[in-house]
């Protein structure tokens, strides 16, 4: 139990996926101009990331390791992630059209979100057990959503800031992310 709590805190805060491990930066920079899309992207990613990590973990242990095909993991994992995204979309469309309307736009983008593939590869590389893998994926996804929401709230404030021309848009956003990352370095003491 203590192990799982450590994995959760580690993935959520100490080794935050965006600010410490540089995974999932495309949505982090691309969909955080305002709060609502950032929240939707965070939720959609949380859902897909956890499901994909479980599916990849099961396939890795049931197929790839017994058959000695671990070197095929990149191809297999990306195919699994694309299928999970597809099934999630089909399921959401029939089960909850309202949710599909708000999240649907972000689902296809998640296939090329490197955080999803990154979690699957890290789980495989570190040889986590199934509960460990689930907790690690949920921590990583929650950390991603948390940072997406914080960053979008800051960027909404930055809209009206009086900046040098050359720094408007992406440059100041990167510097802001750097300062947030500096704050998250403080969590290193928790480990």
């Amino acid at each position: 139990m203590a192990d799982l709590a450590l994995i959760l805190i580690g993935a959520l805060l100490v080794n935050n996926f965006v600010l410490a491990q540089f995974l999932g930066l495309c949505p982090f920079m691309g969909v955080t101009k305002s709060f609502a899309p950032a929240l939707a992207m965070g939720l959609a990613t949380t859902f897909v990331l956890t499901l994909a990590a479980i599916a990849c973990h099961l396939i890795h242990h049931a197929l790839l390791i017994p058959l000695g095909l671990e070197w095929l993991r990149i191809i297999v994992f990306i195919a699994v992630i694309a299928s999970v995204v597809q099934f999630t979309e089909l399921y959401l469309r029939s089960a909850s059209p309202l949710l599909h309307q708000s999240l649907g736009l972000y689902l296809p983008l998640i296939t090329t979100n490197c955080a999803v593939l990154g979690v699957a590869l890290l789980v495989a590389g570190e040889g986590l057990s199934l509960p460990g893998a689930i907790v690690f994926a949920m921590g990583a996804a929650a950390g991603f959503s948390l940072v997406m929401m914080m960053f979008s709230a800051i960027r909404e404030r930055l809209e009206g800031a009086d900046l040098p021309r050359a720094f408007a848009g992406a440059p100041i956003a990167l510097v802001t992310a750097g300062l947030m990352s500096l704050g998250f370095l403080g969590f290193a003491g928790l480990d």
Partner: peptide, 12 residues
């Protein structure tokens, strides 16, 4: 990590 973000922002 913070240095990566900040220096990338300054270079950009």
């Amino acid at each position: 990590p913070p240095g990566a973000f900040i220096i990338a922002g300054l270079l950009l």
